[in-house]
Design a protein around this nucleic acid. Structure first.
Lengths: 345, 345
DNA sequence: CTGAAAGCGCTAACAT
DNA sequence: ATGTTAGCGCTTTCAG
């Protein structure tokens, strides 16, 4: 590896001059600058960011903690954050925690050891306690999509209004005329969307029955298993809200296996708006999470913190939107004469 | 940030002793070791990996370049590589190149600047020329799933036998009795699987027609568009091989839109065996790529290189496997009496 | 068993 | 406009 010292020697000047020339500081004569740049090029010089980080106490690196890139919801956000951070000349360090708090802490410590300038953490990826600890020690942190209403002691965050998300799902199903409604939820991670859903049903006079609540862990398989339980019970629901698309896809699969048609005999609505959801059969009705906006705001908040703008405990809330496709419809068993018609976009 | 010097001061010894104690070298008395470890714990000491990397000339970091984590094929591999590297106490640096060679080079240079100990590069993510350059300068590199038969001048690689993959797809469709067969391929990235497919058809006496070849770019949308073209042509095929699952899902969607039943009126076979493919309707027949094996071998090869085992230009070839699900079947228009029956697993 | 000192490649005052 | 110097936190000889 060639260093600035090598260049200095070759050109016949000192380190400082090379450093200045390379950094584009004005105090170098045009002639020597040219020679230096040329030489750097020839020798294939690459600055050593370790040395720079050590000297400056800043690494231009930010960490990004998420549960798993296996659920395509996260890659959509991760790629956007990567894009933005690159524009600002930061390098992104991606870490999967696999919903494992121990792994989350380990990853966090790795990042701290690397002197990252800040981190963005997605909900369900780790224990808030560990984060608070680092935050109080001065590490810039932004909570993104933090599940759900956990108190965040002064840590800036950008969130989706999950309560509203749950309400939107409920209202959609209610508007279609459903009465026997079930939910598949990843508890306690996704408790707010659950609460919103439940409250909306309740205020419509259709309280959610206990046996209509099934737990999942956000994977396709868990959605599949939960739906299976729901669909083989005597009290079979006519509509299911899966609190993420991945589980909704599993539910879709279970319905198919049971010979239950979607949306004719069963409506399924997800949450996330994962790209593939639009391309399967039937195209999945879902609650859209504005992922790019989430990524953008989170990165902005972090950059601001890194630039010294601490302690203005920002908390941004982004509204989700109902996205009607074809996995939801008026219940076929709707005997009531005033069944509302199905709006489709 | 507390440093070993802080600890030294607190305990009343010198840096060296602290370093030795922390590194677990034997030359420290049990008494002082205990005090040091205790103190480190109390002060929340975290080693600075930048400083360590600088001093040792080794960063325990490896880079991983891939096209995009938006296609779930890659996350499945990435997570496995991350897992293995963590076991070996390496940190993984993930970089998306978005199939953009300029971005790929930029990412590569970033990694080099970070003094990564080595990199793993997945096919279609960047220009081989840039890699060769770094490799010749001594950077350990492993090519993983490198598309397809590009010459790799001495760089170790682990590949899937894509030619066989193409043949397997062809043989499956032929065995079912298909005659009007089409392909959707991401050229020139996926040329080997294409070649295998084409050759197998040819030797069965059913050469692939030019109008039965459509190009895609590995996205769902491109598969969708390509299939649409195929399915609306007068010479509509009875079977389509999409060279990756993502495009196959797009093709499935196109068929649905055209009112063409799969697999009754149209067989579709993909390649990758992406998890979600098993859970959609109909479950996708595909060629399985042993991703974990790929990840494992690639990491092994890299570790070996890092440990000094250069220049044994290894090249590992892993065989793919046919995975029959429900998107392929005997063509309904099969008027021949000896249509083979459909094996399903 | 413990300490002193040099050095990794770079930045950042402070000279000249 | 260029040079000198110290220092970032750690590892690594080499001495005591």
């Amino acid at each position: 590896m060639t260093t600035i010292y090598d260049i200095a020697k070759a050109v016949g000047v000192t380190q400082t001059t090379v450093a200045n020339a390379l950094a584009g500081r004005g105090n170098v004569s045009e002639a020597t600058r040219k020679r230096i740049l040329q030489c750097a090029q020839d020798m294939g010089y690459r600055p050593n960011v370790l040395a720079r980080g050590l000297a400056k106490g800043k690494t231009s690196t930010i960490g990004f903690l998420l549960p798993t890139i296996a659920n395509p919801f996260y890659p959509e956000i991760a790629e956007e954050i990567e894009r933005i951070t690159h524009v600002h000349d930061y390098q992104l360090l991606l870490c999967n925690t696999h919903h494992d708090y121990a792994l989350g802490r380990q990853n966090l410590e790795r990042l701290v050891s690397r002197w990252v300038d800040g981190i963005i953490v997605m909900g369900s990826s780790m224990d808030l306690v560990d984060l608070v600890h680092q935050f109080e020690h001065g590490l810039p942190i932004v909570l993104c999509n933090w599940q759900e209403n956990e108190p965040s002691p002064g840590i800036p965050q950008v969130n989706v209004d999950f309560r509203l998300a749950g309400e939107l799902a409920a209202h959609h199903l209610l508007a279609l005329g459903h009465q026997k409604i079930a939910i598949i939820v990843d508890e306690p991670q996704q408790t707010t969307r659950f609460a919103g859903f439940r409250a909306a049903l309740l205020s419509a006079g259709i309280p959610l029955q206990d046996e209509m609540i099934q737990l999942g862990d956000s994977t396709i398989e868990s959605g599949h298993a939960a739906a299976r339980t729901l669909l083989t019970s005597p009290q079979r629901p006519t509509a299911i809200f899966a609190t993420n698309d991945w589980m909704a896809i599993g539910a879709l699969e279970a319905a198919r296996e049971e010979g239950i048609r979607v949306p004719e005999d069963l409506s399924i609505i997800g949450l996330d708006n994962v790209i593939v959801g639009a391309h399967i059969s039937p195209p999945l009705t879902t609650i859209d999470i504005p992922k790019h906006q989430l990524a953008k705001k989170a990165t902005e908040l972090l950059m601001r913190q890194i630039d010294g703008d601490r302690d203005q405990a920002q908390s941004i809330l982004i509204p989700p939107e109902l996205l009607i496709r074809h996995s939801t419809a008026v219940p076929s068993s709707a005997t009531m004469g005033d069944a509302p018609s199905l709006p489709v976009r």
